[in-house]
């Protein structure tokens, strides 16, 4: 935090004069004045005043890469929980890349089951119909290794840290790969189970202690100590 920057929490109904805010319904106008609609942080710097919402849920946006949990299927699609108000839909034609020249098997639902996680991109979402997913891209598709944990989407910035600092601490400490999806799901791939458990516990620690200062340092120490205890 620099000396000329001022940060404070605002709550619904309070007036703000911000120059930068993320897309969404977070700022609205009432009788010609800007007000906030969710609890958030105003970061006032000489060059700009920005607003960061800090309570809330994941609202799908076209183009987002998310991690979804398959919960059921219909005649030609899977229903996918994406940790948001709307359930997403993945078509069997997309999954098997029919448009890209793939072929549809006779038993499509034996290739992706209820309880499977997928990494997918949101193709369309207009709030009228459910979000449509695609897995037709590199790095997308069924998650076959490692583990996935779910956190509150509002905690995602804390897990990434300022300029990615917390994520870097996790990576260096455990040697694991982390993919943090905007919808609050994190895919973790580690060299072994013990390291994976340490990685999961470290993220749970960040989520539950996100209100404390000096957390990055403590997470680093926690990982070091756990590795010593477990001899990995």
């Amino acid at each position: 935090m620099t000396s000329e920057s001022k940060r404070y929490v605002v709550v619904p109904g309070e007036k703000v004069s911000v120059t930068k805010a993320p897309e969404g319904p977070y700022i609205y106008e009432f009788q010609g004045e800007k007000r906030v609609s969710v609890v958030g942080l105003v970061d006032s710097k000489p060059e700009e005043t920005s607003f960061i919402p800090i309570k809330g849920f994941y609202v799908p946006r076209e183009g987002d890469v998310i991690i979804g949990l398959v919960t059921s299927h219909g005649a030609s699609n899977w229903f996918v929980d994406i940790n948001s108000p709307y359930q997403a839909v993945l078509s069997i034609y997309d999954f098997f890349g029919v448009r890209q020249g793939g072929t549809l098997p006779d038993d499509p639902f034996n290739y992706l089951h209820v309880g499977d996680f997928i990494k997918a991109r949101i193709v369309t979402f207009d709030r009228i119909r459910n979000p449509i997913l695609t897995v037709q891209d590199k790095e997308l598709g069924r998650i076959v290794n490692g583990t996935v944990i779910t956190v509150k989407p509002a905690k995602v910035p804390r897990i990434i840290g300022r300029k990615g600092s917390m994520l870097e601490t996790l990576r260096q400490g455990t040697g694991c790969d982390f993919f943090v999806a905007v919808n609050g799901r994190i895919h973790i791939v580690c060299a072994n189970e013990a390291l994976q458990e340490i990685a999961v516990m470290a993220i749970e620690m960040i989520e539950s202690q996100s209100h404390t200062t000096g957390l990055t340092e403590r997470v680093k120490r926690f990982i070091e100590e756990e590795r010593k205890v477990r001899g990995v």
Partner: peptide
């Protein structure tokens, strides 16, 4: 009071 309670519950991110 409601605002105060909400602000307190949100101060966590100030440490970010």
């Amino acid at each position: 009071k409601e605002k105060q309670a909400l602000r307190e519950s949100a101060t966590e991110v100030e440490a970010l």
